[in-house]
Structure formats: C-alpha cells, structure tokens
Design a protein around this nucleic acid. Structure first.
Lengths: 150, 150
DNA sequence: CTTTTTTAGTTGCCAAGGAAACTATATTAA
DNA sequence: TTAATATAGTTTCCTTGGCAACTAAAAAAG
C-alpha cells in the first residue's frame, strides 16, 4: 500500500478513535457535571495553578469564546476562582477551589482506572511507539494546519 | 516513563489531533455545503453504492438519529436518491446521484491534495508504523468501549 | 498626550449532534 | 392468528461549540 492510500485510512481511523474517546471521556466526566472538553479546560487550570483564559486558548488551541463560556460554568459550579488582576484589567487569574481540587482528584482517579484497563492490551514497546508516532503526527498537523495556511 | 503515565498523554494528544483534523476536514468539505461527518456519511453511501441507514449506523458507529438527519440533508441537496424497498417498508435504499458522484470526486480530490502534503513529513516505514499502531488502538477501543461495558 | 491599533474577554446567533420518546413495520412467541 | 417484542427510522428537546460582532482595556503610533 502506498502513502497516498494509507493517508485517508489513517485520518479516518483517527477520527473514528477520537469519536469513541470523546464519548467515553464524556461518560467518565458526566457524573461530575462536566464533559470532556470542559474537564480538559478545568484540568489545565488546576495544573497550571494560576492562569488566564488566554493561556488556555494558546495551550489547548480552543476558541476563546468557548473557553470563556466554560470558565463561566466552572466558576458557577464553584470549581474555580476568578481574581481580576491589577496589571491588566481585561483579564483575570483562574485557580481551582479546594472543592475543585477534590473533584479533580476523583475524576482523575476514574480516568486512571480506564487507562489501566486499555493499556493492558499493549506492551511497553508498543506504547512507546504509539506515543512517538502520535507526537510526530501532532507536530506535523500543528505545523501544517495551524502554522501553515489555516 | 511507565505505561500509566503515557496513557493520558496519548489520549490527550489523540483528542487534540482529532480536533485539528475535524476543523481542517470541515474546511475542505465546507465549499460543498457539507461538514466532515456529513461527508463521511455521504462517502460511505457512495462507496457502498446501495445501502440502508442501518448500515451506516453499524459501520460508522454513529447515532441513528444523526444519520437520519444527514440523509435528509443529502437528499435535499440532491446528492443521493432514496428508494423505498419492497422487502422492508421501514427502510429505504440510499444511492448517490450522478451529481453527487461529481461532488464526491471533486471533494476527494481536495482531500488527496492535503494528504499528499502532510504525508511528505513521513517516510513509508513511519506511515506503516502509524497505521499499524492506530489500527491496534482502534481495535482495542472498539472492544473495550463498545463491546466491553459501555 | 491624543488617536489608532491590538488584545482579552463576552455575547448572541446558529448548526451540529446526543438522548429519549415516538411511529410504523417486521419478527417472534403463544 | 393474535399478541408481544424487536427493528428502522423520525421527531423533539437540549447542550455544545464555532463564528462574528461587540466592549473594554492596553499598547503603539502620530
């Protein structure tokens, strides 16, 4: 099979896999009142400790409008605090609340269970190879799709 | 790095990649009045030549409600024909119209251009490795996520 | 300084797509 | 043959998230 025949199959499978992943991730995060994307944003906030919306947009390559709405939701759920900064009054610092940290820990535990389960089907070498391949793909697509033209 | 550390990174990157892919695919299909998912369904119909909605649902693992709506749209756009079958009056055969085939060909051409571009960043061996890894992932997730419990 | 431009975030609008309830036909069981 | 169940597809409701227009503040240009 030559490269051009493989390309659409690879893309198709990636889209298919991510559909399954999203649906499953949603199922994991749903009990916590969040979906996968929302949880990712929450997770990034907690991981960074103190960030602005702008950072989320840059790091996760999401729509700023979308991030804004999710931040609102997280705040309403009292999972994060929003502290207006003095240096730049346009933006505010985001940080997880103690309650938020608790939720996060629980949810990460659920994810860990699942990860434990599916990684059983692979050995170390395979996982390393997968990680390497996917990182390469990610770098190329980021370059071609974001940096490149669009 | 051990397996459990790699797992969330792999999942995260997969989700990130697929986000980029979806956005880019949408840009390719948009001029034809379709989005990526809609095009995938259309493509499946054309590929099979003659199918029922049920087949799409099984093959693409999509919501039947969603497929139903997309089929309606494709029919309205006169890209497919819907022929009620005599054997089973609940379902109808779907097939691409000549116009639909033309659109499909053009759109596939656009995809081919893009595939040509991004595959340049990889050699044969890498692409083969990627395809192998991704196929394995797909099989495992299908098994664990669909067959398994959820 | 004042004006222009850029940046951070918000809001409103709309299509996409998931979930559930529903309709109509087919299949199975009694 | 009739009643119960299963299947194909539709409709409805609702959340999500992309896009564009907007506000307010900051930075750059004049």
């Amino acid at each position: 099979m030559d490269n051009l025949q493989m390309a659409p199959i690879i893309i198709g499978k990636l889209l298919n896999i991510s559909g399954m992943l999203q649906r499953h991730s949603n199922n994991i995060t749903q009990p916590f009142g969040l979906n996968q994307q929302q949880f990712t944003i929450f997770f990034e906030i907690a991981n960074a400790g103190k960030v602005k919306q702008k950072d989320m947009v840059n790091r996760l390559l999401l729509e700023k409008a979308h991030v804004s709405k999710v931040v609102k939701k997280l705040h309403k759920m009292e999972l994060i605090t929003i502290t207006t900064s003095d240096e730049d009054k346009r933006s505010a610092w985001l940080a997880p609340t103690p309650e938020g940290k608790k939720i996060l820990k629980k949810c990460r535990g659920e994810f860990r269970k699942w990860h434990k389960e599916w990684t059983e089907a692979f050995d170390d070498k395979q996982l390393n190879s997968i990680l390497e391949n996917i990182s390469h793909l990610q770098a190329v697509f980021e370059d071609k799709l974001i940096g490149g033209n669009l």
